[in-house]
Amino acid sequence: MRIVAEHLSYTYNADTLFATAALKDVSLTVEEGEFFGIIGHTGSGKSTFVQHLNGLIRVPSSMKRYKKKKPKKGQALPPQTVLTVGEYDLTDKKTNFRELRKHVGMVFQYPEYQLFAETVKEDVAFGLKNFSEKKPTNEEITEAVRAALEVVGLNYNEIAKKSPFELSGGQKRRVAIAGVIVTRPEILVLDEPAAGLDPVGKREIMELLHKLHKEWCKTVIIVSHDMDEISENCTRAAVFSEGSVRYVLPPHELFQKREELRALGLDIPLTARLCEKLEQAGVKLDCDFTIDDFVAKLSALKEGKA
């Protein structure tokens, strides 16, 4: 499923004293099969954007706006808002949003806080039961839950009957992710999936996402402000700032723009910082800013000199 957004705008508390524009004329395309990153500060509109993708925030129908304000002759038509995910048109009120949500899994920040059921199994099965056309049999549920828990690296036999509240933080997060992927969404969106985890936990989550990207979900979108996460994992990344998209580039091109990113108040990955230092010392190192590539190029350089 391909995601296409054109001229997407959104204002919170529209028509009140508290009106804040969260998205201003955003145009963005995410191809099927990408591992896409979304970077930006708090309040840059990145979360608002991803919440559009499964219809949690609705696009005001552009047709309605035309009716409200008919442009005069000779006046340019306002740009038409487009938002489609696969064949779903999200600007259309009649779209079946529940069906869409089955295909677009959404893992919110700190997803462990949405656990509620008595057992892990029930919690993971929640989405499955909600999305199934007819009531799934017990075996079907067990099978799906087992598969989902196993792919996130948990042992079904050990954990399924436990209360989700007696698990450790990392385990809870995995259970919560399992609860989203259990319906096998084609697109998986994660808002700060590694937030609040220790370095090992972070690495494990990112490894998990790669595994999911290969085996379960065709497209993975992560929202993050950890640049290392982006440079290590993403095929492309979009930079949000003050509600608009500034850049959409593969990381190895994006992080060449050190000054531009700093001007937006954003960081650059560790590897890019090291490259910068090397450059200042007069050594030009051409790498794609992943740690592996950086190390390989650096050792090659060293051996070449030796």
Binding site: Q51, N54, L56, R98, R101, K102, G105, M106, F108, P111, Y113, Q114, F126, G127, N130, F131, G179, V180, T183
Partner: peptide
């Protein structure tokens, strides 16, 4: 609102 959205994303109605 956040929790509601999270559960909605899991198909809650």
């Amino acid at each position: 609102e956040r929790i509601k959205n999270a559960q909605k994303a899991r198909g809650a109605d």
